[in-house]
Design a protein around this nucleic acid. Structure first.
Length: 308
DNA sequence: AAAAGAAGCAACCGCTTCATC
DNA sequence: TGATGAAGCGGTTGCTTCTTT
């Protein structure tokens, strides 16, 4: 006796989801939640596999999803995390709220991979493809340097002093990344390729990267180099992040940065695009938004569309 | 204007992990 | 402790859209 298939293959619809199906799924989940994905299609009146419903919800319908291309900062973070975690897309996605593993995986394969190859960096190992590239990397400007993973790691050592200062003041930030630290100790492709002489530096780099306040600083620098320009991103980057000053160091507050938008921000942008397609009343959300919030969000979307 | 090729992305498949009994 | 089922994950496929010729 083999394992039961996740769904009855007969009569189960495949392929792209229709607006009607989306509507049913959204209505059902928002009303009842998803106690058991296997039961969802039946209860929601969908001829779909539970797995398919879960995927559709997590990758496309979830209210807290962002839309649009990844920003430079997000891309850089993906590269950094990929160097440390490898193809563990869900782990990477968990560090980028509003982004799905599927989205990041697709973006990696279609954009970042090519970018890295163009820069002469092996997207698998995050090492220079050949020695010539390595030599050219040695002559690059500090700004170029900050735009690739290997250089980010190298730069980390130069910022140790600042980091130590910051980590003392921002208590508790390192523990939030315990999993990263755990993973990076052995499974990182970059780490695997490093010589034993670099181990202490890598350990230091790991420690630094595990410190959110430190990464905030890096991100802040990156944002200076390449401010988000996409209209779609402007929806959730429009609010400047607040910051806390530690001595002469300014640390950007994570939750206030565009890269980690609040749930409210997401609800009022990407998710409402779906509402536009269906008509928000169809979701039975009439009570969730007051008129002001709803009109504000919809007008924001319209403005964004007019810019295109 | 049409065809061909490339790129992007949503969705599927099958394996793994985790929880429960 | 092993069997089972549900959910999660990563690789892959295939459709749609865009670009080039």
């Amino acid at each position: 006796m083999g394992r039961q298939p996740c769904c009855d293959k007969l009569g189960v619809k495949k392929g792209p989801w229709t607006a009607e199906e989306d509507k049913k799924l959204i209505n059902f989940i928002l009303t009842n939640g998803h106690c058991c994905w296997r039961a969802v299609p039946k209860l929601a009146g969908l001829r779909r596999c539970g797995k398919s419903c879960r995927l559709r919800w997590t990758n496309y319908l979830r209210p807290d999803l962002k839309r649009g291309l990844l920003t430079e900062a997000e891309e850089q973070l993906v590269i950094d995390l990929h160097a440390r975690l490898g193809n563990r897309w869900s782990k990477i996605a968990s560090r980028l709220p509003g982004r799905t593993d599927n989205e990041i995986k697709n973006h990696w394969n279609t954009h970042i991979k090519k970018k890295l190859l163009k820069m002469g960096i092996d997207p698998v190992t995050h090492e220079p493809l050949n020695k010539d590239d390595q030599a050219s990397n040695m002559t690059e400007t500090p700004q170029d340097h900050a735009n690739n993973t290997t250089s980010t790691t190298k730069n980390l050592t130069t910022q140790t002093e600042n980091h130590n200062h910051l980590s003392q003041e921002s208590s508790g930030s390192t523990t939030a990344n315990s999993e990263l630290a755990e993973n990076s100790s052995s499974s990182s492709p970059a780490a695997e390729n490093s010589s034993s002489g670099d181990e202490s530096a890598l350990l230091l780099a790991d420690t630094l990267c595990n410190d959110e306040s430190f990464m905030n600083n890096l991100w802040e620098d990156n944002s200076k180099l390449s401010p988000p320009e996409l209209v779609g991103d402007s929806l959730w980057n429009s609010c400047p992040p607040s910051s806390t000053t530690y001595g002469d160091q300014k640390v950007v507050n994570y939750d206030d940065m565009g890269i980690l938008p609040s749930l409210e921000d997401n609800c009022s942008s990407s998710w409402l695009l779906d509402c536009q397609d269906f008509g928000i009343q169809d979701f039975g959300f009439d009570n969730c938004f007051d008129d002001f919030e709803l009109n504000k969000a919809l007008s924001t979307i319209e403005m964004g569309q007019n810019l295109h």
